[in-house]
Design a protein around this nucleic acid. Structure first.
Lengths: 208, 208
DNA sequence: TGTACATCAGTGAACGCGCGTTCACTGATGTAC
DNA sequence: TGTACATCAGTGAACGCGCGTTCACTGATGTAC
């Protein structure tokens, strides 16, 4: 409960990043609750009205938080994909990274994909090539298409397959968090099953 | 805004069902919001404290609502399965019914599978043969196992496949509702894709 | 160098709202004698 | 048949809480002259 030091003259906008960071700590502490402006201000060590110095209203604050974590998710997935060379391995790595992000950071994942004002309201219109969501989804489509052209997956519409993949991953991540009584398999097994049945690839011989 | 007629002597527990019905109307009117005790009482035409004549607290009220809709969902799915004879068609019919319930009745679906106090808290422990959730899931497993023994699906662990199916369906249903900007395919196409890629069955020749 | 003033970061008190829950009550209907 | 009383369905007012937002403010730091 340390007292916060006021930002220097002309640097008031540093509070913006402090608030986004504080929101992260709030989300980590209470992953299922919806973000509240007051909780974020409290965590940042600042009075509630101070938020309005950086954001027009609660929606803008949440929007900034969403944009922040969407970028993090994108980064994590892209990095994971880059670690592998073979198309199936790249796909698997990306899926695993997505699911792990969701499981390990339920608060951020929740605010991204399950809250009242979801990603779509923050990012552009889907289909717009500048839209962050569209580009993220394109990454998944590409990974799937690569598996098809490599002859590892049976041919089909990569867009549709990507929709199925996203649905399955999101379903897994949200259900694991909400239906705690269910005997869920570990993430990597789930992703293996997903890859195997969708892609129809033989199991990776390096695994036992 | 009609005034409610008081229940006759000895029939006070009728209010219980009236409240559950009122909750249904509240959920239909505001599918994304969490149920509030006061909103339900308001909709039932009753003062807020009257709820406590039938339920010990809010949790019990919501629990009763959950149990009610879980039974409805089970019924819808079981009936759908019964309309078909061939294993794949039975599986497809069940999945379609599940997804349609979720899409057409987002409020009830939300309270079942996405709210703070989800199904698991109301039903028994998973694995217990008396648990409603366990039996519902068993229905899905059976449908999948039938496809395997009929030689239509490639062999595998039906439990794992059922987990994948549930994840995919839940993911589709929740994402369709939250990510409205995304170009979702219609339900039946999604379910067809799901069946086809998981089960690896040829497309139904009766469809075009 | 000193002083008046503007800018800026941030605050404290208050608002109206909906919430879950408690409490003492009202008034109609049934039962006992 | 009348009357006292118990039971029962349901209520109105109040509680304390956290919320998003507004408002007039405080006090430190910079700039102009």
């Amino acid at each position: 409960v340390t007292t916060r030091v006021r930002n220097p003259h002309g640097e008031g906008s540093r509070l913006r990043d402090e608030l986004i960071a504080a929101a992260g700590r709030v989300l980590a502490a209470a992953p299922d609750a919806d973000l509240s402006l007051r909780a974020v201000a409290r965590e940042a060590g600042v009075a509630a009205p101070s938020v309005y110095l950086q954001f027009a209203d609660k929606t803008e604050l949440v929007g900034a938080v969403i944009a922040h974590y969407f970028e993090q998710l994108r980064e994590v997935v892209v990095n994971a994909i880059a670690t592998a060379a073979e198309p199936v391995d790249r796909l698997r790595a990306g899926c695993l990274a997505y699911c792990r992000f969701g499981l390990e950071r339920p608060g951020p994942y929740h605010v991204l994909f399950a809250s009242e004002a979801p990603v779509a309201h923050v990012l552009g219109r889907f289909g717009d090539p500048d839209d962050a969501g569209t580009r993220a989804f394109a990454t998944l489509i590409d990974a799937i298409r690569d598996c098809m052209t490599a002859g590892i997956a049976r041919p089909g519409d990569p867009f549709r397959q990507a929709t199925l993949f996203w649905s399955a991953m999101h379903g897994y991540v949200s259900l694991v968090q909400l239906q705690r009584g269910f005997p869920w398999q570990p993430v990597d097994e789930f992703v293996d099953d997903l890859i195997t049945t969708f892609i129809n690839a033989p199991a990776d011989p390096d695994r036992q």
